Measured scan of single mutants.
Amino acid sequence: PKDEAKKKVKEAIKRGDEETAKRIAKKYNLDWDDAKREADEER
């Protein structure tokens, strides 16, 4: 599900692992900028 994928993307971003985050986002066709902004807001 997309929500689960987005959570994984945000967790990867918070760990500083943007490569993984981008790969997950691409795989699930998520909006990378959107997920990154959300992760930054939660930090």
Rank of each mutant, 00 (worst) to 15 (best):
I24C: 07
I13Y: 11
D34H: 06
R43E: 13
E18M: 15
L30A: 01
K10V: 14
A35C: 15
D17N: 04
Y28F: 10
V9N: 01
K2P: 10
E11M: 11
E38Y: 05
T20R: 07
R43A: 13
T20Y: 12
A25C: 14
K2F: 14
D31P: 06
A35R: 02
K36N: 05
A12H: 06
W32A: 02
T20S: 07
K26H: 09
K7L: 11
R15L: 08
E41A: 13
K7D: 07
E4H: 11
K7F: 11
I13P: 00
K22F: 07
D40H: 09
A12T: 02
K27N: 05
D33I: 09
N29M: 07
E19D: 10
K7R: 14
D34Y: 05
K10N: 06
I24F: 04
K10A: 10
K14V: 07
I24E: 02
K22I: 08
D17I: 01
P1K: 13
E42Q: 08
L30T: 01
E11N: 07
R37I: 06
T20N: 06
K7E: 11
K27M: 15
K2L: 15
E4W: 15
A5H: 07
K27T: 08
D34C: 11
K6F: 15
K36I: 13
K2H: 12
E19C: 11
A5V: 07
D33C: 13
D40I: 10
E18R: 05
A35F: 14
A5Q: 06
K14D: 07
I24P: 00
E4C: 14
K14E: 10
A35Y: 09
E41T: 10
K36E: 04
K2D: 11
P1W: 15
I24S: 01
K22R: 15
I13M: 08
N29P: 02
L30Q: 01
I24D: 01
K36R: 09
K26L: 13
I13C: 02
G16W: 02
E42N: 07
T20C: 13
G16T: 01
R43I: 14
K27P: 00
V9H: 01
D34E: 15
D3K: 08
R15G: 04
R15N: 11
G16L: 02
N29C: 15
T20H: 08
A5L: 08
A39C: 05
E19M: 09
D34W: 08
K26D: 08
A25T: 02
K36T: 06
P1M: 14
D31M: 03
D3C: 13
